[in-house]
Amino acid sequence: MTIGALGKATGTKAETIRFYEKIGILPSPPRTSGNYRAYGQEHVRRLGFVRRARDLGFPLETVRAMLALADQPDRPCGEVDALVVGQLHEVERKIADLQRLRDELDRLAHQCRGRFRMADCRIIEALSPHGEVQGG
């Protein structure tokens, strides 16, 4: 299949496919006599794996490590499990950060509710490093 067909099958732009080839995440396909890339089902499967892992937030280096492990079918899968647990901890950290952000924005939103003039706006005051905004 062509790069366009691979892209359509996996929801991936051709530029991204070429990038994954360049960095070794996706093996370079054989070329046709017209020098076009000729992708096969293995490329579809591998690129589908990469897309799903990226959708779950895995960094490219972790995806690369998981692919290297997957290429060794007789190995125990404990290393992949450890990579997934590490990603889970990272997601939990991000969720905690987002919860703190939500709480702070909620606190700010409830400080004013349009009751004050801009000169007395508690949100502007809270967001300003020294409690005041310099005009420009």
Score class of each variant (00 low, 15 high):
41 Q>E: 14
43 H>P: 14
51 R>P: 01
82 A>D: 07
42 E>Q: 13
47 L>E: 04
115 R>D: 06
100 R>A: 13
62 T>D: 15
23 I>N: 06
11 G>E: 10
41 Q>Y: 08
74 D>R: 09
87 Q>H: 14
83 L>P: 03
11 G>C: 05
118 M>W: 01
123 I>R: 07
109 A>R: 01
123 I>P: 13
93 R>L: 07
63 V>W: 08
69 L>W: 00
91 V>P: 03
43 H>Y: 03
124 I>M: 08
20 Y>L: 10
81 D>Q: 14
11 G>V: 01
73 P>T: 05
109 A>E: 01
6 L>W: 01
7 G>P: 02
7 G>Y: 08
18 R>N: 07
45 R>M: 04
29 P>I: 14
45 R>C: 04
117 R>C: 06
79 E>D: 14
20 Y>M: 06
13 K>V: 09
38 A>L: 04
15 E>M: 10
116 F>A: 15
5 A>I: 02
96 A>Y: 01
37 R>A: 04
7 G>H: 11
64 R>N: 10
79 E>N: 03
44 V>G: 00
42 E>L: 09
61 E>D: 15
99 Q>N: 07
110 H>Q: 09
3 I>G: 09
52 R>Y: 07
114 G>C: 06
27 P>T: 12
112 C>Q: 13
110 H>K: 06
85 V>E: 13
114 G>N: 02
45 R>K: 10
8 K>S: 08
93 R>T: 10
85 V>R: 14
110 H>G: 11
42 E>G: 11
99 Q>I: 05
33 S>C: 01
100 R>M: 10
7 G>R: 04
105 L>S: 03
8 K>F: 03
110 H>M: 05
46 R>G: 09
